[in-house]
Nucleic acid binder design. Structure first.
Lengths: 204, 204
DNA sequence: AGGGTTATATACCTGATAGTACATTTGTAA
DNA sequence: TTACAAATGTACTATCAGGTATATAACCCT
């Protein structure tokens, strides 16, 4: 059994950078949503033709899902790293300030593609909508687990309901995405983050 | 100059109820968004043919805008009535509980059409997106004015920044729309409302 | 140099899209 | 009863959607 190389050397080599093309696709989906994005939008942004797109990424839906994966694994993604902060308060802090910085970043479309990519959509986009929903729910679940762990560690008071706290924080973060989409600046979002943190339950 | 009657009696009478048809159109736009809704979706839901739709409502965009107007003037709309409550705290209370009840109401599509109708969209929907953005911003502005008035009335502490408080509350409300879209129940949203109110600045 | 293999560009396919022309129906007013 | 006005149903248009067939171009290995 021979090793399978990741970039097969047989045949004509691909003339474009898949990662760069995927970044471009992500940007278009992020700005226009799944339903609002046409294949022409995509091929123009990616600088390739339709057959290349289909050969490399499958179809529109699979391309979207791959773009979302890229989105979550980018260097500026802040969700998972925030969960690793030592205390519940610091987790919330990093989530809120990370959201403020990233969602209003002028180098990207405003808001969050996980939220606005297919919030309400055609039947053709149902699978995509569900994939996004699952990610949002999953993120909130991870947050809840982190807060439960914090209670056990003693840096979150016993009386706090981890599930409700996670849902509340998720709600604020999701609201910040809408604010950013509305044109709110990073500073304005930081003010919302501060006000949220003022009421955040702390140890002791 | 003779009076112009609202329902002209000349010519063949309209065979459908415009208000009922508009309700149906609203429901489709609400569920599928502007880009995700086709004229076929609309005519099927409204029970009329395309020429009737165009004669009565102009075109897809104008129909959407009229549906939004209906949405804001429905009996269950809670935003404007909430602003008239006597204190800032009660305003927030009614907004939050009104959102919890309405956005998760199983008799309607989940969430809020002002938020999810055209959050990210094609260029063809740009005007619609802007109309929705303006309404969101306008709502927040009204809320800010209400809180400024509350400060003068003395039921909100002097140190509170009305603009930031309005933006924070708007963020939570918008986040609740995403939560509802995600399938959160009215009870779950009420928990978020309660947690938000716990931290709400009160007089004295 | 030639065969195998993969990517590319062009051109195409089928079905759906928003919007409309037209002939017909249904009502009011004279 | 006839003239007029507006709404209706059918059928249509032009364009665009997502997706593909095919011929050609570029590369590796032998």
């Amino acid at each position: 059994m021979t090793a399978v190389s990741c970039t097969p050397t047989i045949g004509r080599p691909r003339a474009f950078d898949m990662d760069a093309a995927l970044e471009k696709a992500l940007e278009v989906f992020w700005r226009k949503g799944y339903d609002g994005t046409s294949l022409t939008d995509l091929t123009e942004a990616m600088g390739i033709n339709k057959p290349s797109l289909y050969a490399a990424f499958g179809n529109k839906e699979q391309l979207f899902l791959k773009a979302i994966e890229l989105y979550e694994s980018r260097p500026c993604a802040f969700f998972i790293p925030a969960l690793e902060k030592p205390t519940a308060y610091q987790v919330a802090e990093h989530l809120l300030y990370g959201a403020a910085m990233n969602m209003a970043d002028k180098n990207n479309p405003q808001g969050c593609v996980i939220i606005q990519g297919a919030l309400s959509c055609s039947e053709a986009a149902a699978a995509v909508k569900e994939a996004l929903m699952n990610r949002r729910v999953d993120g909130e679940h991870k947050l809840r687990q982190r807060f439960e762990q914090a209670k056990q560690a003693g840096d979150l008071p016993e009386h706090v309901d981890a599930e409700v706290l996670a849902r509340y924080l998720g709600t604020v973060l999701q609201g910040m995405a809408i604010q950013a989409n509305n044109g709110a600046s990073a500073d304005q979002l930081r003010q919302v983050a501060e006000m949220t943190l003022l009421a955040f339950p702390r140890a002791g």
